[in-house]
Design a protein around this nucleic acid. Structure first.
Length: 518
RNA sequence: GGCCCCUUCGUCUAUCGGUUAGGACGCCAGGUUUUCAUCCUGGAAAGAAGAGUUCGAUUCUCUUAGGGGUCACCA
């Protein structure tokens, strides 16, 4: 039996060191961001280091710009690596596995020398034939194990001279781990507890590829060891290979780190894990920031560009699979660090809920000061090339903030504050605009025109004075007045709107409305 | 299919043998608002099923069902 218990947690005397190790095959998915976030939170919580390492051992899947994207996305979230890519080099580098290529071979050699691994000459065809044979024989589960390796061409079945000759002749080969027969591998996962697998159900995985590169399994274990990683926090998709990793630590004679396998982010509706397609289908981003695919020219949308605040984004992500055990739901990054506890991460996958994410963003938007809100609105206006009176931005942004979830709503919900309406809401027009409306608007325009100060209070007093004088209810005049000035049937206080627009504009709009609506 | 993991309201979750099973998002209703939004109040909504252990199971064990992951010279 091979055990991998949480020794690190029994005496957390050594400094906590965790890593996020994505492979640069494209944009980072929000599931990956959450994994990075949990790693970061755990490190900071325990005064440890968070490293960023790039696992680019598969040159065929390398995507230009992906690494830059990962660093930028994490930076937007407020996650900065202490060490590695995007952080300092503290002597454990390089931090890209492609640049560490030369060192992996010696570790493969080490396992070979210790009889913990062997050289295999199987071709792809031979492997396929073997699988097919097993299938034809009715074997439901085929493993590349102690039985299979006895029937293949490798350093265990061939005489040493022949192996040497093949290598000398330049024949391609791989190095596979030599798993013992019928051993129980047990590892203690911080989130899941003890996980147990028998080696009979495991494969002699390839550790070192024919192209001279290590596979994930070898490179990952070697690097984690060399970089002093104490806790491996990664997605649940790695749980099936965790026992293999335990066997590798065992083979090297290294102490294994503490494992924690995070639950997956699932589709909001159907089965399966969250994918880019779900985002496209359901109308929400699955990436932290925009990603431009250079080959197709398409852009995959990101939370940043969608209008999310980084704080809201990570707040939402953090609560997807973890909770503080209290009823608090709103946390800033430091608050998350303080409250984070790996053992309170849930075991089951979490269906992604974009609605909750929107709620978080709304909360964060409302928490902004008037100055900050004004700046957000200014950005949106500038982006659209609309002109505005800077002095009113704070008032407008604050007024609109209660009906906004994203900065762009600050404008969308009150576009009439910046543009004279060209269309008038049909439903409101049919229901609220009558033959009596035009004369009433005319009267109101006259009264407004006489106002010395066109303030919200003065406008309100004037408007109500008109109602009293004519003995009219608000409902008789208000809706059509709103329609005339804003073109809409609903919105914020008309008096504030008028004050912001200014007397000239309001009068102009009223006369235009009378012309158009009749 | 093999192996592994998981299973409380529609969703995210609290509960670490004894609770009227709590909160949040969403939804519904009422109130505030001339309107809408906001805000306030209230409501509907859950322990997959079956055994066992126990004085007592959502909680512990087993079985079944369901869901997920993984089975590459990808990570």
């Amino acid at each position: 039996m091979y055990l991998c218990a949480n020794y690190n947690d029994i005496n957390m005397s050594s400094k906590v060191r965790v890593r996020f190790a994505p492979s640069p095959t494209g944009p980072l998915h929000i599931g990956g961001v959450r994994t990075a976030l949990y790693n970061y939170l755990f490190a900071k919580k325990h005064g440890g280091d968070f490293l960023l390492r790039i696992e680019d051992t598969d040159q065929t899947r390398f995507v230009q710009g992906a690494e830059k994207y990962i660093v930028e996305a994490l930076a937007w979230c407020g996650i900065s690596p202490d060490e590695g890519i995007g952080g300092e080099d503290r002597g454990n580098g390089p931090y890209r596995q492609s640049e560490r290529k030369p060192m992996y071979r010696e570790y493969a050699e080490q396992l070979l020398a210790a009889d913990k691994a062997y050289i295999a000459f199987d071709t792809a065809e031979e492997l396929d034939a073997m699988r097919q044979m097993a299938k034809d024989a009715g074997a439901s589960n085929w493993q590349y194990n102690y039985i299979t390796r006895g029937n293949m061409k490798n350093s265990l079945t061939l005489p040493k001279e022949e192996v040497d000759a093949k290598i000398a002749a330049g024949e391609p080969y791989v190095v596979r781990i030599k798993l013992p027969r019928d051993h129980e591998v047990r590892l203690e996962d911080t989130i899941r507890g003890w996980v147990s697998v028998n080696t009979n159900n495991m494969d002699d995985k390839v550790l070192f590829k024919a192209d001279g590169m290590p596979t994930y399994h070898l490179a990952n274990i070697v690097d984690d060891h060399l970089m002093g990683i104490t806790h491996v926090i990664r997605g649940e998709e790695w749980l099936p290979s965790a026992p293999l990793h335990v066997m590798l630590y065992e083979a090297f004679g290294w102490e294994c780190p503490t494992f924690a396998h995070l639950p997956l982010l699932l589709k909001p509706d159907g089965p399966g894990k969250l994918s880019k397609r779900d985002g496209d289908r359901l109308g929400f981003p699955v990436f932290p920031i925009d990603w431009k695919n250079d080959e197709t020219g398409e852009t995959a949308s990101g939370y940043r560009e969608f209008g999310f605040f980084p704080g809201a984004f990570i707040n939402m992500l953090a609560l997807l699979g973890w909770n503080p055990g209290t009823e608090q739901e709103v946390f800033d990054l430091q608050g998350l660090v303080d409250a984070f506890d790996l053992s309170k991460v849930s075991k089951s996958g979490a269906k992604f809920d974009f609605e909750k994410g929107k709620w978080f963003n709304q909360l964060y938007l409302r928490d902004l000061s008037e100055v900050e809100l004004a700046q957000e609105l200014k950005n949106v206006l500038d982006n659209e090339g609309l002109s505005y009176n800077e002095a009113h931005l704070g008032t407008i942004a604050t007024m609109m903030s209660e009906r906004a979830t994203f900065p762009k709503d600050l404008l969308e919900e009150g576009r009439f504050l910046f543009e004279t309406p060209s269309v008038y809401d049909e439903k409101t027009r049919n229901k609220k605009w009558s033959d009596a409306s035009a004369p009433m608007m005319q009267d109101i325009a006259h009264r407004f025109n006489a106002l010395p100060d066109f303030t919200s209070e003065a406008i309100e007093a004037s408007f109500k004075g008109y109602l009293a004088e004519k003995e009219l209810g608000f409902g008789k005049v208000g809706p059509s007045f709103r329609l005339a000035v804003t073109g809409r049937g609903m919105g914020p206080s008309m008096f504030t709107i008028c004050a912001v627009l200014g007397k000239d504009e309001v009068l102009a709009r009223i006369s235009k409305a009378i012309k158009v609506l009749g």
